[in-house]
């Protein structure tokens, strides 16, 4: 019966959703033709030993002692491609093929955070036009 046990699959490999874009590993996922849950560990906390100079500079600019909201940013995978979910855009933004992916999730997450900041702060972010079109005051 529905709702009595977890029927999704576990994440066991950093490249799992690049190798298997559909993510149908458990019996239930195969049965329904749909991956259950996230394609990355949303509860993974950052390893501050792996922080990059760019992110350190960002923290200093904002007056924060840690990654703040970026602690929730991870590299995910969409249709077999690495991507980052941009909450300001409500969609996935893909990692270009020219960027070499590290072999562990922590370093991938740091790359995801850097790219997301640069994108969100750029003039090409969709929020720039949205603000112009819909902003109520300012």
């Amino acid at each position: 019966m529905a709702g009595t046990q977890y029927r999704g699959s576990e994440i066991t490999d950093v490249d799992q959703f690049i190798k298997d874009a559909d993510g149908l590993a458990s019996e239930r996922e195969k049965e329904i033709g749909q991956h259950i849950g996230y394609r990355y560990d949303v509860n993974l906390v950052p390893d501050y030993n792996r922080i990059t100079p760019f992110l350190t500079k960002y923290m200093e600019t904002m007056g924060w002692d840690d990654l703040n909201w970026l602690e929730d940013v991870h590299m995910g995978y969409e249709e077999g491609k690495p991507a980052v979910f941009d909450r300001n855009n409500n969609g996935w933004v893909r990692i270009p093929d020219s960027i070499e992916l590290p072999d562990n999730q922590q370093d991938r997450d740091m790359i995801a955070r850097e790219l997301l900041i640069k994108f969100q702060m750029s003039d090409r972010h969709p929020l720039v036009s949205l603000r112009k079109a819909y902003m109520k005051f300012g």
């Binding site: 904002m62 790219l115 640069k118 994108f119």
Partner: peptide
């Protein structure tokens, strides 16, 4: 949408 790997270093909107 794809990231621009050469995007400028900016920290604020």
């Amino acid at each position: 949408v794809e990231f621009d790997p050469d995007a400028e270093e900016r920290f604020e909107y």
